[in-house]
Computed example of a mutant assay.
Amino acid sequence: MAHRIFHYLLLGMVLLGSSVLQAQENSTYRLSSGDVISINVFGEEDLSFEELRLNDAGIFSFPFLGEIRARGLTASQLEDLLTERLKGDYLISPRVSISVLQYREFFISGEVREPGGYPYQPGLTLRRAIALAGGMTERASTNRITIIRDQSGSSEKGSLDSIVMPGDTITIDQGFF
């Protein structure tokens, strides 16, 4: 009996830890094209959207307000922007919440078995990204990996423990034998 209670307690701690990690990541995560968000304006069904994909410019259309540029904003910043713009002319005291439902893809090419775009998952490492792409080919080099960061456009040398972010482009080069 005690073993079963310990098991459920451990499972609960893992789930709580993963939701805390997700919340922390969402607080610093910058929105961009391809992200899918939900918008909830409390008590205003016509202004709430269960699933909204940001276009190529990171923009979406919102009733009464027109085009809203979300690219580069955190979910919290977007909440503040919508709250401020809805306040006064449209609503007295709007309460807006934004959730990221689906992150944009990351891309992996070069010496992997199945190059292409893959859905981002919070906590993704380069090792796991390579596994999603079917693993490395026999000619792949673990020392010649480049990651181009979507947010900054910077290029960096990657290791198998590097963190992958949404929109990143990863290239696995050939090793010299």
Rank of each mutant, 00 (worst) to 15 (best):
V96P: 00
S155R: 14
P94L: 07
L78I: 05
Y29C: 04
L54H: 03
Y29G: 03
T171R: 13
L11T: 12
V164G: 03
G134L: 09
L73F: 14
L73I: 06
R139V: 13
T125I: 11
G17Y: 11
V112A: 13
Q151V: 15
S33P: 06
F49E: 00
L65H: 02
G88A: 08
F106Q: 00
L124D: 00
G66N: 01
L52V: 00
A129S: 11
S48C: 14
R95Q: 10
L81I: 03
I59Y: 03
S109C: 07
G153K: 07
Q77T: 04
Y90R: 02
G12S: 12
Y103H: 10
T125L: 14
S32Q: 02
A131T: 15
L124W: 02
L81F: 11
L124E: 00
S97H: 02
I145R: 07
H3I: 14
S155I: 12
P63Q: 05
P115N: 13
E51H: 11
S76G: 14
Q24C: 06
G117A: 12
Y103G: 00
I170S: 07
E45N: 12
A131W: 08
D56H: 06
D46M: 06
H3W: 12
A23I: 02
T169S: 15
R128F: 10
V20I: 14
S99P: 01
S154E: 04
S33C: 04
T125H: 13
A140F: 07
M136D: 03
R71K: 09
S93D: 13
I5G: 09
S19M: 07
G123W: 09
M13F: 15
L52G: 00
G72T: 00
I170Q: 03
V36N: 09
V96T: 01
Q174D: 08
V14M: 15
F60R: 01
V36P: 13
Y29V: 04
K87C: 06
K157Y: 08
N143Y: 06
P94S: 11
R4T: 07
S18R: 13
R128T: 12
T28Q: 15
G72R: 04
L11G: 08
A70C: 04
T125S: 14
P122Y: 05
G58K: 01
N26D: 12
P166T: 02
Q102T: 10
A2K: 15
E114V: 13
R128Q: 14
Y103M: 02
G110L: 03
D56I: 05
G135V: 02
Q121D: 06
F62H: 03
I130Q: 07
F177N: 15
G110T: 03
T28K: 14
I37C: 01
A131K: 15
M13H: 10
V20W: 11
L126Y: 09
N143E: 07
P122E: 02
S109W: 11
E51F: 12
I68L: 05
N40Y: 12
E79G: 05
S48I: 09
G134A: 05
S97N: 04
I147Q: 01
G175P: 01
I172T: 08
A129Q: 06
G116K: 15
E44D: 05
D150T: 07
G117D: 08
L124H: 09
M165A: 11
I108V: 00
G58F: 00
L31H: 00
R127F: 15
S154D: 11
E67K: 09
L82M: 11
E45D: 14
T169D: 11
S61I: 13
E79L: 13
T83D: 10
E51V: 10
A70M: 00
S38A: 10
G17T: 06
A129C: 10
